[in-house]
Amino acid sequence: MKNKKPISTQMKSGIKKGLSVALKANANSSGCYIIYQPKVPKALDKFKGIK
């Protein structure tokens, strides 16, 4: 019997992938397009295309 991941785990994984796209877009731009830029976490550096 195969071990199937619970739906909640699959959903979390899917949401994280979607958020990773937003992080990549934000990391590779000068900042938010809205008029408020929150402080960026250090871990955002791993999403940068330029190193």
């Binding site: 994280k16 958020l19 990773s20 937003a22 992080l23 934000n26 938010c32 929150p38 960026v40 976490p41 871990a43 955002l44």
Partner: peptide
């Protein structure tokens, strides 16, 4: 922190 930031900006 990273995903909190991502959710916030989204």
């Amino acid at each position: 922190e990273l995903y909190e930031y991502a959710i916030y900006i989204t």
